[in-house]
Amino acid sequence: MLEHGGRLRAAAQHYGIPLSDWLDLSTGIAPEPWPVPSIPLDAWARLPEEDDGLAEAACACYGAAHALPVAGSQAAIQALPALFAAGRVGVLEPSYAEHAQAWQSAGHQLIRLAGGEIEARLDELDVLVLANPNNPTGERFEPSRLLDWQARLARCGGCLLVDEAFMDSTPEDSLAAHSHRPGLVVLRSFGKFFGLAGVRLGFMLAEPALLARLHERLGPWTVSGPARVLGRQALGPASGVARERRAGQLQAAGQRLAGMLDAHGLAPDGGTALFQWVRTPAAAELHDFLARQGILVRLFETPASLRFGLPAGEIGWQRLAQALADYQKETT
């Protein structure tokens, strides 16, 4: 299995720092969880029923025509490649590594591409897979460009898959409204924006025929009853104002984090409302320095870089600022 952020217990054991003393910035998850509503007892006691309005709430929230709830977008990432005939799959790199692994494991030929290479090599591909905005680089692709690429792929029976896990704070850039087109798949994550990763809820937006094939492959009851209740509440029209307020707060927090890193000689090379990405040859050294202060960030080896998530609460912000200042003093 690939390594991901959030492995806090392993870090606590390695550095000998109690779990409760850590500031975990290793995931791109909103630090303040969405208020969890009261969950009816029958959501726990009965098998989930799929005609409960969750898919419709997701469609209305995202502006999509069709949606399939899944147990986190990761479930769709792993199952989707088996629905396509073996072919040449372009995968953005660096990006969320589970995409490449899933397509390769399903027998597809991977073509790893930097963002600037896609245009020139698109005609070589049967499928193009990318995240927008990208994780961890924060690279963004204009919707008009993506739709052009999708049309070119579709003319030859190909497909564009766009992972929009970090799109919620900038919904105007989403392709959700176009996801009914044959040859376009959009994935949306619930846990990151709402700060509820443990719920394991996500959505695939696509044409009905492809959604039905994925549904059949995943089987029944893939999303728990309590998760479905929570999803309907958070994505429903009554929560629209609260979602807009949250998006604005997260955007401001992302800008604050970028400014803090820049002020300490670590100008981000990219980012989103939920994380900032810093390329530096000293990535491993800084990762270790922060970990010894009980601050966990996400380390990437290729390219050498760090991803910083948002601190929770003002004490967390102050703690990160102090650690960065201490590191700056030590290295100058």
Rank of each mutant, 00 (worst) to 15 (best):
L274E: 12
L274D: 15
L274H: 12
L274P: 12
L274V: 04
L274W: 13
F275H: 14
F275V: 02
F275A: 08
F275E: 14
F275S: 12
Q276E: 11
Q276K: 02
Q276R: 10
Q276F: 02
W277E: 12
W277M: 03
W277P: 05
W277A: 02
W277G: 01
V278Y: 04
V278C: 03
V278P: 07
V278M: 07
V278R: 05
V278L: 02
V278Q: 07
R279A: 04
R279H: 08
T280G: 04
T280C: 02
T280K: 12
P281H: 07
P281G: 01
P281V: 02
A282T: 11
A282C: 13
A282D: 14
A282N: 08
A283D: 09
A283K: 08
A283E: 14
A284C: 11
A284K: 06
A284N: 10
A284Q: 15
E285D: 13
E285S: 02
E285V: 01
E285C: 01
E285W: 03
L286S: 00
H287F: 06
H287I: 00
H287D: 13
D288Y: 01
D288I: 01
D288M: 03
D288V: 02
F289T: 07
F289N: 07
F289R: 07
F289W: 08
F289D: 15
F289K: 02
L290Q: 02
L290S: 01
L290W: 05
A291W: 13
A291V: 07
A291S: 15
A291C: 09
R292D: 13
R292V: 00
R292I: 00
Q293L: 03
Q293K: 13
Q293M: 05
Q293S: 11
Q293C: 05
G294C: 09
G294F: 10
G294L: 05
I295C: 04
I295L: 06
L296D: 11
L296M: 11
L296I: 06
L296V: 06
L296C: 08
L296S: 15
V297G: 11
V297E: 15
R298Q: 15
R298W: 13
R298P: 11
R298D: 15
L299Q: 14
L299T: 11
L299F: 09
F300S: 05
F300R: 15
F300T: 12
F300Y: 13
F300E: 13
F300D: 12
E301V: 01
E301W: 06
E301I: 04
E301F: 02
E301S: 10
E301L: 06
T302G: 08
T302E: 11
T302P: 14
T302L: 10
T302M: 06
P303W: 09
P303I: 00
P303H: 03
P303Q: 07
P303F: 03
P303C: 00
P303V: 01
P303T: 00
A304S: 15
A304V: 11
S305L: 01
S305P: 15
L306Y: 12
R307F: 11
R307G: 14
R307T: 13
F308S: 08
F308V: 03
G309N: 09
G309R: 02
G309V: 02
G309I: 00
L310M: 06
L310F: 03
L310H: 11
L310D: 09
P311T: 14
P311N: 10
P311W: 14
P311A: 05
P311F: 06
P311V: 05
